[in-house]
Amino acid sequence: MIGVLLVDDEELVRTGLRAVLEAQPDIAVLAEGADGAEVNGLVARHRPDVVLMDVRMPAVDGITATRALLRRPDPPRVLVLTTFGNDGHVADALHAGATGFLLKRARPAEIVQAVRTVAAGESLLFPAAVRELLTGRTRRPGLTGLTEREGEVLRLMARGLSNAEIAAELVVGVETVKTHVGNVLAKTGARDRTQAVVAAYESGFV
């Protein structure tokens, strides 16, 4: 069961998302919040797996709330909700540590799939959109210390492949891929695949 917290200042967005997600047998909406300021308290109380977070909110915006959330010892994954795909907020949210982003106008099936993908943490959400958002951003110093195989794995992660798909691509076992992914996360200082991919794009690695 995937526990979800909805944070959006627009009630109609929350009720719509809740209806879509609650209809799924494997997803439960644990609570709703109307501002980023409520997030920390709600997470402490309900321990969700995924937080669906709006960007623009009256008091504390979604990016600030995401940053604060990820300082917790065992933070939930954050899926940022956005009205428009091309505003700079999405890239900022990925920087702040969000695992993925979701357009509010996405189809119900896409919304559900996005929540499942982010909860599993097994593959990157919307790899093409992420690439578009992150290319051309200010670059940080290059990634160092990755082995050749780890570099290959990181490139495949950036293309959105899951562990099983990477294993098939490289003709190795899934366990081996998991080891490589773990090493990549450790060496890039990333807490999940998304953050590793963000670092890869920003360093010009992919």
Binding site: T15, G16, A19, E22, A23, F84, R105, P108, I111
Partner: peptide
């Protein structure tokens, strides 16, 4: 307009999804 279209799109999608199971919604 963008905000209104977003909300109506989302609500309409949700309504279609739960029309049989939650007609009140």
């Amino acid at each position: 307009v963008g905000h209104a279209l977003t909300v109506t799109t989302l609500q309409a999608g949700a309504a279609a999804e739960v029309l049989d199971t939650d007609p009140a919604f």
